[in-house]
Simulated assay, not measured.
Amino acid sequence: MKGHLKNFTLLTVSTLIMAVGIYFFKFANNFTFGGITGFAVLVAKFTPLSASDFSFIANMLLLIIGLFVLGKKFAAQTSYSSILLSVTLSGLERIYPMSHPLTNEPLLELIFAIVLPAIGSAILFNIGASSGGTDVIAMILKKYTSVDIGKGLLASDILFTIAGFFVFDIKTGLYSLLGLTMRSTLIDSLIESLNRSKYFHVVCSEPEPICEFIKNDLKRGATIVLAQGAFTGDDKYIILTVLSPNEAIKLRNFIKAHTTGAFLLISNTSEIIGKGFHSV
């Protein structure tokens, strides 16, 4: 129950963060990068529909198509975020209509248009969810074709972004192109930061006190490997464990205070699969 509540909270907060970044900074400045919401900016220029309303219609249509093509499991993972994002964008348009950007600093607004949706997307991807949109198209193509989905979606994003040069002006197009370039890199970096852990190699002669501290105080597991010193030929033990950054500080301080002659190798890692981390 606690895990479901945490996931629901993360879904809600991340989707609302995305909505704020898209509505107040992306739509208001006509930035055309980023899937359905980027396309919505172009549609709003030529039709009576606003970008928010077009996003709502497009996301709902894609959600219905996804339900029939991809099944109920897809709907359970995607529908809440997709509906919440679409409804929030349409609601913001009616509660706080915007006829111009919030500030006269387009570069500052571009940063928020990139960072806020990127944070929201990173949280969603990290818990195995999505906000719908072009993700639905990607999932359908993946099911029925051998098309390289990543390249296909990147190509559509590039087309929408380039269209911004002709539909609006060169400055808006350049900002959109910059946003497209930075967006995917930032999302990858944020996901890595959310999953970052510390991987320990501890080489020592007496592993018991260190392992007891890991098990009893940190509530983590460890693996002991018997080794031999290349220079002295003495028997050594290598303790392997993965900890959160806060736990890593505690272990490092414990070893420093209670163990002499230990050799530590500590590295950053973000791909941990197993008990206590991500399930297989």
Results as ranks from 00 to 15, higher is better:
135 D>Y: 07
220 R>G: 11
41 V>Y: 04
93 E>M: 13
140 I>D: 00
186 L>S: 01
148 D>T: 01
215 K>G: 15
45 K>N: 08
178 L>I: 14
180 L>W: 00
152 G>R: 03
95 I>C: 08
112 F>R: 01
29 N>F: 05
38 G>N: 11
236 K>L: 09
226 L>M: 12
64 I>S: 07
51 A>W: 00
141 L>Y: 14
245 P>R: 03
157 D>Y: 06
190 L>P: 09
72 K>P: 11
118 A>W: 03
232 T>M: 08
41 V>K: 02
127 I>K: 06
6 K>H: 09
104 N>R: 11
197 S>L: 09
174 L>S: 06
265 L>V: 13
243 L>P: 01
112 F>A: 02
216 N>A: 11
208 E>G: 03
222 A>V: 08
91 G>H: 06
142 K>Q: 12
177 L>G: 15
270 S>K: 11
101 P>E: 06
27 F>C: 12
216 N>V: 15
191 I>D: 01
83 I>M: 02
131 S>N: 15
54 F>G: 03
118 A>F: 13
212 E>R: 15
153 L>A: 13
242 V>M: 06
52 S>D: 05
146 S>R: 10
30 N>L: 09
234 D>I: 07
37 T>A: 05
244 S>C: 10
161 T>E: 14
233 G>D: 06
115 V>K: 05
143 K>I: 02
270 S>C: 09
122 A>R: 01
117 P>N: 01
56 F>Q: 03
247 E>T: 11
256 K>Y: 11
33 F>W: 08
244 S>F: 04
228 Q>M: 08
